[in-house]
Computed example of a mutant assay.
Amino acid sequence: MALIQVNNFASTGGGNATRSSLFLTMLFKNFLTYLYFYFRPFIKWFLRRFTRLCELQRICYGSPAGAARTRQVEMSLQLSRRREIREMMNILDNEVEHCSEYELRELVKKMVMTVMMAKKIKPRNHPDFARLFGECVEQIWGYRRLICIVEAIRTDQYDPDNLNNEKKLFQLWSLLMPDDRLESRITKQWQDIGFQGDDPKTDFRGMGLLGLENLLFFSSEYNSAARHVLSHSHHPNHGYTFAIVGINLTSMAYRLVKAGKAKTHFYNITRRAPRIEHFHKFYCYLFFEFDRFWISSKPKSIMDFSIIQEKFERNILSVLDEDSTVFKMNNLVVEHI
């Protein structure tokens, strides 16, 4: 599990020097990127002549499985000028929102065949290419399909007249407060697990059912960890509203995934198309680590939440920049405070 730390600058001068250094670094990286894309056609031609392999073959054979390979494949496909490849990419883009996992895999097979024909890659001479490239394509468009699934759950608003919605809400209470019985549907008891008022339905407006589904998954799959985090939220000096913070972290997870910032994690966590369970586990990791980060930051009050969350998100983004990053919920260390 990645350790998240906050770096505080001792003085304003140190902060200005660091900002200048970051600016120069970014400028240098942009210059190198410009040079690469300018000379890219020549580089590709030279390497093709020298290695007798196309760019996609070199990536699949030379890069380790996971984000390191898949992100390069994704970039190569985005820059492809071949008409048949771009047409197949458009088909995948149009179908991915509504297709099933089986239909996605069938589309992946078509993409693999399209590339192999366009690049004149013979299966007999390159028996591993179809499998390696196919895994990358499934990850790329599986991630895009996951965004559609997450978005659909987010836009589905909590409905108190929907018995399934109500059942999940009561289940959340039972998992977090197994020794306490709810007095009624609308009660101040909901504040014990971090909702703002007497009726939790109003707190789900921003993230819809996605907020409830995330909280429920965390509480059911990692019940011991969730209840310890809940106990931390009741701390007399560093407490916070468990459910509200959880919904805010749903928003953070949603933003990271939709913006493509979380690709590194999802490309490393599975060789196949990521499922909604992978998103829930990503959320659980964020919640568990945020709780640790919050306590270690020793906030003066809940009013420090925005500042601490911004620091936490910046640290997560920094970790996600590494191709080897993968967040796992294995072997959770539950700390008592």
Score class of each variant (00 low, 15 high):
residue 138 E to M: 02
residue 139 Q to C: 01
residue 139 Q to D: 11
residue 141 W to K: 03
residue 142 G to H: 06
residue 143 Y to N: 02
residue 145 R to P: 14
residue 146 L to Y: 04
residue 146 L to H: 03
residue 150 V to D: 00
residue 151 E to M: 06
residue 152 A to C: 01
residue 152 A to S: 02
residue 153 I to R: 05
residue 153 I to N: 00
residue 156 D to Y: 12
residue 156 D to P: 09
residue 158 Y to N: 05
residue 158 Y to V: 03
residue 158 Y to A: 03
residue 160 P to H: 02
residue 160 P to R: 01
residue 160 P to A: 02
residue 160 P to Y: 02
residue 161 D to S: 11
residue 161 D to Y: 10
residue 163 L to C: 14
residue 164 N to M: 09
residue 165 N to Q: 13
residue 166 E to G: 13
residue 166 E to W: 05
residue 166 E to T: 13
residue 166 E to D: 11
residue 168 K to W: 09
residue 169 L to Q: 12
residue 173 W to D: 07
residue 173 W to N: 03
residue 174 S to Q: 14
residue 175 L to A: 03
residue 175 L to M: 06
residue 175 L to T: 05
residue 176 L to Q: 09
residue 177 M to L: 08
residue 177 M to V: 06
residue 181 R to T: 14
residue 181 R to A: 03
residue 181 R to V: 01
residue 182 L to Y: 09
residue 189 Q to M: 06
residue 189 Q to K: 12
residue 190 W to S: 04
residue 190 W to N: 09
residue 190 W to T: 14
residue 192 D to F: 13
residue 193 I to E: 05
residue 194 G to L: 01
residue 195 F to S: 06
residue 195 F to C: 02
residue 195 F to N: 04
residue 198 D to R: 11
residue 198 D to I: 06
residue 202 T to Q: 15
residue 202 T to D: 15
residue 203 D to I: 00
residue 203 D to W: 05
residue 204 F to L: 03
residue 204 F to A: 03
residue 204 F to Q: 05
residue 205 R to D: 14
residue 207 M to C: 04
residue 207 M to Y: 08
residue 208 G to N: 05
residue 208 G to E: 08
residue 209 L to P: 09
residue 211 G to E: 05
residue 212 L to Q: 06
residue 213 E to S: 12
residue 213 E to C: 07
residue 213 E to H: 13
residue 213 E to N: 15
residue 215 L to G: 02
residue 216 L to C: 03
residue 217 F to E: 06
residue 219 S to H: 09
residue 219 S to T: 12
residue 221 E to T: 13
residue 224 S to G: 09
residue 224 S to L: 13
residue 225 A to Q: 11
residue 227 R to E: 01
residue 228 H to W: 12
residue 228 H to T: 09
residue 231 S to N: 15
residue 231 S to H: 13
residue 232 H to E: 15
residue 232 H to L: 10
residue 235 H to T: 11
residue 235 H to I: 08
